[in-house]
Design a protein around this nucleic acid. Structure first.
Lengths: 344, 344
DNA sequence: GTGAAAGCGCTAACAG
DNA sequence: CTGTTAGCGCTTTCAC
């Protein structure tokens, strides 16, 4: 059984064992410091022998930098964001960074959470909950902590952002539905103020316009299953119910499918449904939801790429990037004639 | 527009403004330090005027304690754990603690993640991924960081644990199914080595034995939808297929329901299915899964209670607590005759 | 109860 | 390239 050293080993201990100065130890463990290979090896060996790791607090006290990356997230219970967090965590762990997790009340915005993170001299911040205020963005810049927003409205100022191209994604959905010959189109949005939801609706409307159609009716479902279910129920009970419904998120689309089934409607025979996200549940046998996939992996990767670029190169220009969504054809929407033949 | 002080305000600044010593400032912000009310007020006012907050690194460097709580979690993408994290985050935020999030590779165990957390002098650790090794548990104790495991096998040694009573939960499921008159019982477990899964199976078997029955066949589904689907497909294709399936998790139960439907079986008419967890999806219209609910809220609350007790009172005895699960009757399992009348 | 002084363990500027 | 030196901002003795 290994002994549990309660006594902490410091750089001085390592220095003594290696027979060098304490600052040499520091340099040996600082990438890019000017130190000879021989010295470096000597120190490294002594450090390993003692099981030494630098005290993160002493280090951060001086450098004013930590290896924390702050993650501000509103809804971990949303499958899409759970996956974002999962991938974020793995990537950061691999790069030797730590995740300082901050839930943000959806109603209050991320400002307070960000303020707290700043106390910990986070190296950077990823926000997925809502848009940052201009004031807080400025504070992050002043504190030297670059910010990247994921799937949020690019805030005014210097914060970067990565998002799935919602307009384009909405267009994909609208185009498919229109070409399949549907006549009455409905859109179910998330929260009235949500930027991504509005963009998805816009793209949807644009595609319909291309075909001389328009959104006949809309409702909001708060991005949740229950909300989507309720919204769809209302829509489908109208005297002229829609035969094509595009939802701003998969959860709402799944609720929509269930609402249709409860009313005895067949999907997609009586009504076509398309979602947005491609969460795992969308692929379940019970739903087989046709949807617009957000390429989470690439989005997260790009987010971190930008973040680390800015960390390494403070003051570099902000980047506002869109990544294309991708139509995933399953069974919840009728297809245009000859569609399968055309796409192979 | 507020000015973004790039210059940090230190306790010395506050001391100067208040006309007191720097150590007085420290004492004013340390609960339980010996200081007069007048002095405390004076310092507090100056601190507020300057927007002062102590440098967490300098503080932790001395005290060897941070306000981080480490959370080691394997599967955020699992709806049950997403909810755990969500609640954990909210509660901790409320108590002024920060969440240091560490994903743990399921295959590697939590030891490495815990080791990393210890570097940050976390005040405590919550683990939901797998059981801690005895060695690492000892190291946590040595480092003064209490550990509470959530829904994991209580490790040998001093770590506390809170879990849903799986034996009892399994019993509930078995009892209901047996009393409803089913004849062929199947169990779908998670991973072969998973403690909670084994306990659920044991309780299930015990209940069946009470009625002179037994588990006829079993399979493993890795706790996932796809795994449950595949496992159930195999089970239902047997020459003597089960008419009652108890699954070690809701996701697998949902997969089981879909597997049954794909084969043209009606649930619960042809086969009854019961899950475990009560994740939000279990309540969806498309499934209406009868399941054993884990009272997440209480479990998380109790976990934190124990953790903070141990933080406040180092060396206090470990607690191993079980919290009862609760049968949630929906539509995926046939009920014993007169059941509804009897339960009101 | 209060101030002065001594570090916590480390990085970074400075000589050599 | 290497050692010496000076703090980072705070908590915590120690005198008074």
């Amino acid at each position: 059984m290994k002994k549990a050293h309660a006594v902490r080993v410091t750089s001085l201990d390592v220095a003594r064992l290696a027979g060098v100065s304490q600052s040499a130890v520091s340099r040996a463990l600082t990438p890019g410091a000017s130190i000879s290979d021989a010295m470096k090896r000597r120190v490294t060996e002594a450090a390993e022998a003692l099981g030494y790791t630098p005290n993160v607090f002493a280090r951060s006290l001086i450098t004013r930098r930590s290896d924390f990356i702050g993650v501000v997230m509103g809804e971990v219970t949303n499958a899409f964001y759970a996956e974002v967090l999962d991938r974020l965590g793995r990537s950061l762990q691999k790069r030797g960074q730590r995740v300082l997790f901050a839930g943000a009340p959806l109603d209050a915005g991320p400002d307070q959470a960000v303020q707290e993170l700043l106390h910990y001299h986070v190296a950077g911040i990823v926000i997925t909950s809502a848009t940052l205020s201009r004031d807080m963005a400025a504070r992050c810049t002043a504190a030297g902590a670059p910010v990247v927003l994921l799937n949020r409205k690019p805030p005014p100022g210097e914060a970067s952002s990565v998002r799935c191209d919602s307009v384009d994604g909405g267009f994909l959905a609208g185009d498919l539905l229109a070409r399949a010959g549907h006549q009455h189109f409905a859109f179910i949005g998330g929260l009235p103020g949500a930027f991504s939801s509005k963009e998805r609706e816009r793209g949807f409307a644009q595609a319909l316009a291309t075909h001389g159609k328009a959104i006949a009716v809309r409702a909001d479902g708060g991005f949740t299953y229950q909300g989507g279910l309720a919204a769809a129920r209302g829509l489908l009970r109208r005297s002229a119910p829609p035969d094509a419904i595009f939802c701003g998120s998969d959860e709402m689309a799944l609720g929509t499918i269930d609402a249709a089934r409860v009313q005895g409607l067949r999907v997609p025979h009586d009504v076509s449904v398309i979602g947005f996200d491609d969460i795992p549940t969308a692929a379940w046998e019970g739903y087989r939801l046709t949807t617009i996939r957000q390429p989470v992996e690439r989005m997260v990767e790009r987010t971190l790429e930008i973040l680390f670029e800015q960390i390494k190169q403070p003051g570099s220009k902000r980047v506002v990037q869109q990544i294309a969504g991708e139509l995933v054809v399953r069974g919840s929407a009728r297809l245009p004639a000859g569609y399968l033949a055309a796409t192979g």
